[in-house]
Design a binder for these strands. Structure first.
Lengths: 331, 331
DNA sequence: CTGACAGATGTAAACGTTTTCGCTACTTTG
DNA sequence: CAAAGTAGCGAAAACGTTTACATCTGTCAG
């Protein structure tokens, strides 16, 4: 049926061992025979059977990524980076969607472990203990989550939040409110950390609300609570929530950024397209994806035991939802 | 290292053959021994090595999907369906992003072919001949594209477009303009087909413009051209273009839906969230994904040579961008 | 000239399954 | 009761690689 290494061997008048060597470690065979093998392989259109190779080497040439929701542009952004880098390294990518469910998430990692050389986990939710357990089965790289002894590709949310606060304070805002995302999320913790530091340093008021579901509806709900605290700027956990805030503000006839400023986080596509365009923090999604792959491959190829946790920079994108606060009515 | 079938055999006091049978064709072994094997396997945490199995069966237990752009929510919608159905059937999913590039698209299909039992192709761009060639290497299922002899999961765009026209005509619109997407796209052809039929039948005016790039910028550009033809309703090829149209209309101070109605296509997330919420056509994305997997598995398991091309229904979603046209100023 | 050594290649074992074939023991049938 | 089938199971071959080991040739040092 398919052309095997044996066919190439016959065509090139050598043994299968020589063919294998000529292809995988070329410096072990004489140049003349190597050329004969290579041209024979090319002529027959030979492609090694990865299953057979994997059976003996223990390597699959695959890697996996498990994400909570493929419909979330955040994750597809990193997936895109993962995909591209993996292809360069001649790896194939398994993708699994956990539907935000922790138990299936764990099942997925476990099921993948058998067929991949490593897996990238983008899971705000899943338990530490389960992750450590999974790390025992296969090599792991975490995305946006710090776990002792496990390599990680991190995006510097704290720095992004600091940039937001700096920006708002520079505009003259003194009463800020932050709408929390999920309590368990590492990203939310980081954002709060950056937030606390920056607001304390600037000596401005900060009210924290939530947690809210990081969704449009969460933004709608949070908006009214936020307004009740009388802020001049509302910082949402992410862009989708910010979109909900914007919608609710419009419904209530409150002008953005005239009466109140709004910021998001993530810089998803619609942040640029909504109206007014959203001031937000751009996350290095694709770079984080490629970095995650690099970390994974590093861990596989070098037997050094150093686990690297790399921080990537984030960048405030100023658009049209932030402006100086309105002048005080009763000075 | 890992627990193999031999370990299970020893534990259960049977031969490896019996273990294999107990797991893959349980009715071939006596219930008593089957139970012994199963409990031994469970106790040891045995998981079959898929590479070894694939080596002998010729099946990999994987399937692939190649999409033009992972950042496009349309494709992640179907990917999500694919992923879910594949998992139910105990298949793993390779995903590849071609970055809208035809040559890499072909390379990807070719590279995947070796490691999967079949691949789902969501490619408006790639050549027919290349696809037929690929179909020779592995089993193929097309998404939203009709190709003789190749199974396909199709979404009935024509019907969706008909629903749009019916809706607009019922509101009283008589001058419609359609903004074409890519000429080569099967979906665009289908939408035009439905459009032509419906407008002729209703006897209303239709102006076609374009093709435009199916993006936000395409919508901006198309909007001005559309207005110049004096329509009361603008139908965009897809939601993203419609978003551009809405933005441009707002900039020009034209009220939606007061002065002009706008419709999109696809019902992506932001269609519901933008303002005003967009009247559009919902596409069965996830169902199409699961259908594609079913078609693929059908083709693999049954040796019947019938190729099925299944149409899925689309559904008009009326939101706030459509209304009766403004009364004529000069009657 | 001999021994050792290096380079190039071949032989065969191994990887973990599935599956064909054959064997045994039992059941059915004439 | 003999012949023929059948159910249940084990032995071993096969899948397509990689790689440890063996073999062979030639070169070089002594």
């Amino acid at each position: 049926m398919a052309v095997t290494i044996r066919d190439v061997a016959r065509e090139a008048q050598v043994s299968v061992a020589t063919v294998s060597r000529a292809l995988s470690s070329p410096d072990l065979v004489r140049p003349a025979t190597r050329d004969r093998v290579l041209s024979a392989a090319a002529q027959l259109g030979y492609q090694p059977n990865r299953a057979a190779r994997g059976l003996i080497t223990g390597r699959t040439g695959n890697l996996g990524i498990v994400v909570p929701d493929l419909n979330n542009p955040f994750f597809t952004g990193v997936l895109k980076g993962v995909q591209a880098r993996a292809r360069q390294a001649d790896y194939a990518v398994f993708v699994a969607d956990s539907d935000e469910d922790r138990t299936t998430e764990e099942q997925l990692v476990r099921a993948m472990a058998k067929q991949v050389d490593g897996v990238i986990v983008c899971s705000p939710g899943i338990d530490d203990t389960l992750l450590y357990e999974a790390a025992g089965i296969t090599s792991l790289v975490m995305l946006n989550r710090r776990l002792r002894g496990v390599p990680a590709a991190l995006m510097n949310s704290a720095s992004g939040m600091r940039q937001v606060v700096d920006h708002l304070v520079a505009l003259g805002h003194r009463k800020l409110v932050y709408l929390n995302g999920p309590r368990t999320s590492w990203s939310n913790k980081e954002r709060r950390r950056g937030l606390r530091l920056a607001t304390q340093q600037h000596g401005v008021d900060l009210v924290e609300l939530g947690p809210f579901p990081p969704r449009y509806e969460g933004g709608l709900q949070a908006c009214d609570l936020a307004l009740a605290t009388g802020p001049t700027a509302i910082m949402a956990y992410n862009d989708i929530m910010a979109l909900g805030v914007l919608a609710r503000l419009r419904d209530r006839g409150i002008s953005v950024p005239g009466d109140v400023s709004v910021t998001g986080f993530d810089d998803l596509m619609f942040a640029e397209l909504c109206s007014p365009p959203l001031t937000t923090v751009a996350m290095p999604l694709a770079p984080a994806g490629t970095l995650a792959v690099d970390l994974l491959l590093d861990g596989l190829n070098t037997d050094s035991a150093d686990v690297r946790q790399v921080d990537l920079d984030t960048q405030l994108i100023v658009r049209a939802t932030t402006a100086p606060p309105p002048p005080k009515l009763h000075p």
